Simulated assay, not measured.
Amino acid sequence: MELSNLTRNEIGMPLAGFGTYQLSADQAETSVEEALKKGFRHIDSAEGYNNEEGTGRGIKESGVPRSEIFVTTKLFPGYKSWGAPEKTYEQTIETLKNQLKLLQLDYVDLYLIHAPLAELRLEQWRALMELKKLGLTRHIGVSNYNEEKIKEILNAGLAKPEANQIEFHPMNTQMELTKYMKENSIVPIAYSSLAPLSNWRSVEGQGGEVLADLKKEGQVVIKDIAAKLNVSEAKLLLRWGLQHEYSVLTRSTKAERIKENLNLFDFEIPNSDMELLNKLNKNQPFAWAANGLNPMEAAPLLK
């Protein structure tokens, strides 16, 4: 079954998407093409992934009509602590225009500020509002924003973010933020759903070994429930996110796993097992840990 035939969220985004983080441009090209041919209809990219040219080639070569594909990409806002200059309003506008050239697209479906790392983040948000008016993106949102940073936008009298993409899995449930987003009709999108697993980012240099000891106890629970339900641990974690009403992202360079990770709608996790998974929460993010950073807490004060 093609994902286009499955449930989408409020902004038309398929609930299971294909991510491109840590893929080379060539890997992004072949994997995105394969994912679309296997039925994925949501592709998630970012300026900071440095592979949008390959992602764009994969979209084009898949032969799937543009109208059927939901494409997300993100603005890297700049971060002074990394020596990366913060983007101004004008630079934010130009950044998406350049990303569209790389992606070989006329528009993206969702454009996100990747993290609230810049003092200029309200200026950048105003630019995203303008990009939506220009038709270069159909929806605008944020990523790695906590409740405080979302309220900062609202208190400035600016348009509400339509979505927030955050690290979300049984060891980092962020339930208060999840509740806030639901109450305010902000679409929740999960990344790093597979972070609890021992083989997550296991290639040297990907950073999966950081904080690995914190996961061991929970991995036993995940393994037992997956075995009981006769599904892979990856599918279990992705399904857990779906049952919390998140859109989820998966990524692989292997054709058989790409296909398997799309089949998330043919089983359900019983409530008792959902509770066991929920109890694994440590409020511990893992995705940015190799950089020594929690992006939700690293935001500078506005001046």
Rank of each mutant, 00 (worst) to 15 (best):
M1R: 08
N5A: 14
N5M: 11
T7S: 13
N9T: 09
M13A: 12
L15M: 15
L15W: 01
A16S: 15
F18T: 02
T20Q: 07
Q22Y: 12
Q22T: 13
S24V: 10
A25T: 12
E29K: 15
E33T: 13
E33G: 10
L36H: 00
L36R: 01
K37W: 00
F40H: 13
R41V: 08
G48D: 11
Y49K: 07
N51K: 05
N51Q: 09
T55Q: 09
R57I: 14
G58H: 06
S62E: 05
G63K: 06
G63S: 11
V64R: 07
V64D: 06
R66F: 07
S67E: 15
V71N: 04
F76R: 10
Y79R: 10
W82V: 05
A84L: 12
E86F: 06
I93H: 00
L96S: 01
L100T: 02
L102P: 04
L102V: 08
L105V: 05
D106C: 07
V108N: 01
L112S: 01
H114L: 08
A115I: 06
P116G: 03
L120G: 00
R121G: 03
E123N: 03
E130L: 05
L131Q: 01
K132Y: 00
G141W: 00
K149S: 13
K149F: 10
K151T: 07
E152S: 10
L158P: 03
L158G: 09
K160S: 14
K160W: 02
N164K: 02
H169A: 08
M171S: 05
N172Q: 08
M175Q: 15
T178I: 09
Y180N: 04
M181I: 03
I186R: 07
I186L: 04
I186C: 03
S192Q: 05
Q206G: 09
G208P: 04
A212D: 13
D213T: 13
L214G: 09
K216L: 15
E217W: 02
Q219L: 13
D224Q: 14
I225V: 10
L229C: 09
S232G: 12
E233H: 04
A234R: 08
K235N: 15
R239M: 06
G241M: 01
G241D: 01
E245I: 06
Y246R: 12
S247C: 12
T250M: 15
R251S: 15
T253D: 13
T253M: 11
A255H: 08
E256D: 14
R257S: 10
I258P: 04
K259C: 08
N263D: 15
N263K: 15
L264I: 10
F265S: 08
F265N: 11
F267Y: 07
N271F: 09
D273V: 07
E275V: 14
N283P: 00
Q284M: 14
A290R: 13
L293R: 11
N294T: 11
A299I: 06
A299E: 09
